[in-house]
Design a protein around this nucleic acid. Structure first.
Lengths: 159, 159
DNA sequence: TTGATTTACTGGTATATACCACTATATATG
DNA sequence: CATATATAGTGGTATATACCAGTAAATCAA
């Protein structure tokens, strides 16, 4: 083997937390998307649909907060799912500014179908990474995603 | 305080590694982008420019690998930086299929300017999260990003 | 009750990122 | 050498995601 095309990923800049987490997100995106197979949906879309179920007809605002996502970004992300009849928006009765998000019947069925595929990917992740460590990593990442962490980060601003 | 608008982020689906890492990526993206301030660039663009420097005139292919990014995605991501005169592509002498990526003089200056802002954000992160833990997290994420991990994950495929 | 402010969402625009089909170049094979 | 194959990059299209400027509805204040 000559020295070109090194298999070791040399020279990678590993010092930035932001960069590190995005790299990992790209990698896991590929892995989980693969696992979604021929369903036509991506891992991100499955996550979003699952969060909608968990949140029990959240408003867009609340769902955006749960996803740590910009409200308008969420709106755009939902469009393909609405177009494909998996998700629908229902005006709130009390507050006519608000819209509630829910899965359609087709959406519920699709989410169930994807759940099995997701579980396989998740199992593979846990086995490859170690179940204990995987759980700890998810807790760690949830902490970083929390507004508590954002506040701690922001407080450091003034020296 | 009444029970509407709960400040606790309840009902968040925390079980998915893919979802967890993306949520954290969105959060850190906001934080690091903020830190880039009025420079007109985002944290991702700074990371990319820094990786270009570290890789010493990589080809697009090698840079994509270092970033754990799809080759064509990298091409698209580079476009605004090329348009703004911060990055340039130079055809390789030996292999005329390949193009090498490098910062222009303006790009080098800009990267240095951003470095100081990035360092502040990174310091805040390390203080808020704990320096030791931050380093361990980055190592962990680098492992997940590695092809070694992808192989381990993929081997689990066949039961 | 009316005017000011805040809140929830929408649409536009820009970057981030992936996959696919295509082109051009390089390499391997008979 | 000529052809088959593999490699590097480009362009199109689609989703992911952010910020900003608007609109409409709710709430607060005088």
């Amino acid at each position: 083997m000559t020295e070109d095309e090194p298999t070791t990923e040399d020279g990678v800049w590993l010092d930035c937390s932001n960069s590190a987490v995005r790299r990992a997100a790209r990698r896991l995106g590929q892995l989980y998307d693969d696992a979604m197979g021929e369903t036509g949906l991506k891992g991100t879309q499955f996550s979003l649909m699952t969060q909608i179920v968990r949140s029990e007809e959240p408003t867009l605002k609340r769902l955006a907060k749960a996803m740590v996502m910009d409200l308008s970004a969420l709106g755009h992300t939902l469009k393909p799912l609405i177009r494909d009849g998996l998700v629908e928006l229902v005006p709130d009765e009390q507050d006519r500014r608000a819209k509630r998000v829910r899965l359609t019947a087709a959406g519920v069925a699709k989410q169930r179908e994807l759940l099995a595929l997701w579980q396989q990917a998740q199992n593979r992740f846990d086995e490859a990474f170690g179940r204990e460590q995987a759980e700890e990593l998810r807790r760690t990442l949830a902490f970083i995603s929390s507004s508590e962490f954002t506040q701690a980060f922001s407080r450091k601003q003034d020296q």
